[in-house]
């Protein structure tokens, strides 16, 4: 098992690459969902403002 984690002596290069890739995938998912949620709340606000006028 430790042979797997050591990656033949290249662990400090291999694991940060996979870690950063995971972080980029998570950031993309999080930011896209946040963008959609913000757009939706802006649409709801615009609708509420129109109804109040």
């Amino acid at each position: 098992m430790s042979a797997f984690w050591s990656m033949g002596g290249y662990a400090r290069y291999v694991w940060p690459c996979f870690g950063f890739a995971g972080a980029v995938l998570c950031w993309n998912l999080w930011s896209a969902r946040g963008y959609l949620a913000a757009a939706r709340s802006r649409a709801v606000r615009a609708m509420a403002m129109d109804e109040n006028v």
Binding site: A32, R33, Y35, L36, A43, A46, M47
Partner: peptide, 26 residues
């Protein structure tokens, strides 16, 4: 998948005065 989510956000931002958006949000 991420593009689909972002495109939906872009459409909502650009079309938020459209009737269909209001119905979709409601």
């Amino acid at each position: 998948a991420v593009l689909c989510i972002r495109v939906r956000g872009e459409v909502l931002n650009r079309e938020r005065q459209a009737t269909w958006v209001r119905e979709a949000v409601k």
